[in-house]
Simulated scan of single mutants.
Amino acid sequence: MEQRILWAGDSTVKKNTIETYPQTGIGQVLPLYLRPEIQILNYAENGRSTKSFIEEGRLDMIEREIKERDLLFIQFGHNDQKTDLERHTKPYGEYQVNLRKFIEVAKRKGAKPVLITSLYRRHFDENENLKDNVHEDYPDAMKDVAKVCGVACIDLCEKSKQLLQQYGDAKTKEWFMNLPGNRYQAYPDGLVDNTHLRYEGAVIMAGLVAEGLYELGGEYKNLLLNEDKKKVLL
C-alpha cells in the first residue's frame, strides 16, 4: 500500500504555481528528501489559520480523503497571530482546541498526525541578532498539545531560528522573498518579505523537516530517501 502525506497549513508550506514564482513552499520541495513512492497531497493555502482553515471546510476535505497509514502534517501559527476575527486564535485557547480537531480527524481514520511548529520569521535587529519570540506562545502551545495527545512533533520554529542565527542577516536574506525590481514578472516592483521562501530557502527549510523526521525515528525516518543526506549542506 502506498504511503501518503497530507499537509494542512498556510502559505509557508503551500504548493505554488508560476504566478507567484519564485515563492516556494516547504511542502512543495519536501519530496526531494523522500522516497519516490511517498505521495504528498498539499492542502495548505495562503493566509489560513487553524480557525479559517477549519471554517472554510478544508479540514472536511482532508477528512474525506485521508485513510489508514497516511500521515497528516499540521503546520499553523503564523496567521493565528493575526488580529482579525476571521483568523485570530489565542495560543492557549482556541488554537489548541483546533489543533486537537486535526489530530482527531487523523486518528479517527487510522492515520498519524505530525505537528510542525511555524517557520521562524527572518527578523534581525540593528545588531544583526535575530529577534526573539516573534511567534509569541504559539510554538510552545503546539508542543504542549503534542505532549498531551501523545503525537509526533517537529519543532521547525526552533530549528529554523537556530539556522537563521547561525548564518546571519546577509546570507539568509537570499533564502526569503526579498526581490529586486524588474527581475520577476509577478513582482515588477520588487518585494521585501521575510516570511515566505524562495526555492533555495524552501529546500533548506524542508531539510530541517527531514531532519525532524530522522530524529523521530521508526516509520518517520523510513520516509527519507537517504538517511545520510537528511539536510542540505550550506
Score class of each variant (00 low, 15 high):
residue 108 R to D: 14
residue 69 R to D: 15
residue 233 L to E: 15
residue 130 L to R: 03
residue 154 I to G: 03
residue 147 K to C: 00
residue 13 V to C: 10
residue 122 R to L: 05
residue 189 D to M: 11
residue 104 E to F: 04
residue 45 E to L: 05
residue 173 K to A: 07
residue 112 K to F: 00
residue 231 K to C: 07
residue 90 K to M: 07
residue 83 T to K: 14
residue 32 L to G: 04
residue 224 L to G: 09
residue 196 H to R: 02
residue 116 I to F: 01
residue 130 L to Y: 06
residue 143 K to P: 00
residue 124 F to I: 07
residue 222 N to H: 12
residue 234 L to S: 12
residue 31 P to V: 02
residue 178 N to D: 14
residue 159 K to A: 13
residue 201 G to P: 04
residue 58 R to A: 03
residue 165 Q to H: 13
residue 35 R to T: 12
residue 195 T to G: 07
residue 99 L to W: 08
residue 223 L to Y: 03
residue 21 Y to Q: 02
residue 226 N to T: 03
residue 207 G to E: 08
residue 26 I to F: 00
residue 166 Q to M: 14
residue 196 H to V: 00
residue 64 R to D: 15
residue 86 E to S: 10
residue 82 K to Y: 03
residue 100 R to E: 05
residue 86 E to A: 15
residue 63 E to L: 00
residue 95 Y to E: 12
residue 93 G to N: 08
residue 228 D to T: 12
residue 2 E to N: 13
residue 213 L to W: 02
residue 193 D to H: 01
residue 3 Q to L: 12
residue 196 H to I: 07
residue 97 V to K: 08
residue 8 A to W: 06
residue 132 D to S: 14
residue 200 E to T: 11
residue 163 L to D: 13
residue 228 D to W: 09
residue 162 Q to T: 13
residue 82 K to T: 12
residue 6 L to Q: 09
residue 74 I to Q: 03
residue 222 N to R: 11
residue 199 Y to C: 10
residue 192 V to S: 14
residue 187 Y to L: 02
